[in-house]
């Protein structure tokens, strides 16, 4: 049995950054890369399922991105994923999260996993789209924002909890195979061991293309996407906070005054 774990290598920006000349992105020189926090939890959930099952389970991580994304795939391999697939070609520039879902759906058709676990959202763009969109394309059941996942012994159904607004949770029962989007806090992601990191270096990362996955033109890149970035710009400052300057002692004394004013002291 296989579990597919699609991951994203997310971007945080340098403190000072510049847009590309066409203003449609931030210049990649100012990108700092890391594995998406939510995907750390979905990988951990897959590892926990594998460890608590008697029958062998293969965990496949996949991502869409250029060779920079190998770093995040290696991190997953070091933690215990069995195999990694990275899909890229230049046609995939300007692919949005729905377009990414079309690629993951092709990987799923080829690999036929019993379960797809992915993060609720990415920390950089927070679309909350890819997992549920993948299910829509595959015609699979799906559940979003899951903070407990308990499959039946024969893996045909699972009991889940969804985290709703205001701390409320919803217990549901879902047919498998399914796509589950995992909320942070569902488990405690492990750190990779030194041995794991070493071993991961020797596992080859499969490099796939839309072509090798059998995708057709209308599914690829902008054609397969549901939105196009026209431009990016710096948000207008909503309120201009009064910045309290000075040494920490001076700043704290002003803060103390604010607190005392509030208390009417």
């Amino acid at each position: 049995m296989k579990i597919l774990v699609p991951i994203k290598q997310v971007v945080t920006l340098d403190e000072d950054f510049e847009f590309t000349p066409d203003n449609r992105d931030v210049d990649h020189d100012f990108h700092i890369y890391d594995l998406n926090e939510w995907d750390d939890y979905s990988l951990e959930e897959a590892l926990l399922i594998k460890e608590s099952n008697d029958s062998p389970i293969e965990i496949i991580v996949c991502t869409v991105g250029n060779e920079y994304a190998d770093e995040s795939l290696r991190k997953c391999l070091a933690k215990g994923a069995d195999r990694a697939i990275r899909v890229w070609s230049n046609e995939l520039k300007n692919t949005d999260s729905i377009g990414i879902a079309r690629i993951i759906a092709h990987i799923a058709r080829r690999e036929e996993p019993q379960l797809i676990l992915t993060g609720v959202q990415s920390s950089d763009f927070a679309h909350s789209t890819t997992g549920v969109a993948t299910a829509g394309i595959l015609g699979w059941p799906y559940a979003a924002v899951v903070n407990r996942f308990e499959p039946d012994h024969d893996f045909t159904k699972a009991s889940i909890l969804r985290e709703l607004e205001g701390g409320l949770e919803e217990a549901m029962n879902i047919d498998l195979p399914a796509v589950i989007t995992i909320q942070v806090g569902i488990n405690k992601p492990r750190y990779a061991s030194l041995r794991g990191i070493k071993q991961a270096q020797s596992i080859p990362i499969e490099e796939a293309t839309p072509d090798s996955l059998g995708m057709i033109d209308s599914e690829i890149g902008e054609s397969g996407s549901a939105s196009i970035i026209k431009k990016m710009f710096i948000p207008e400052k909503l309120s201009t906070a009064i910045i309290i300057e000075g040494t920490p002692a001076q700043q704290a004394s002003k803060l103390a005054k604010i607190i005392n004013d509030f208390k009417g002291v």
């Binding site: 729905i98 879902a101 909350s128 789209t129 979003a144 549901a226």
Partner: peptide, 23 residues
């Protein structure tokens, strides 16, 4: 843009090939 909408809208958007953006 709520937990429930996150829980179905993207499936329809991808399947019906809608234009789509969240949040």
């Amino acid at each position: 843009h709520t937990v429930n909408t996150i829980g179905y809208a993207a499936a329809v958007a991808a399947d019906q090939r809608l234009g789509f953006a969240t949040d």
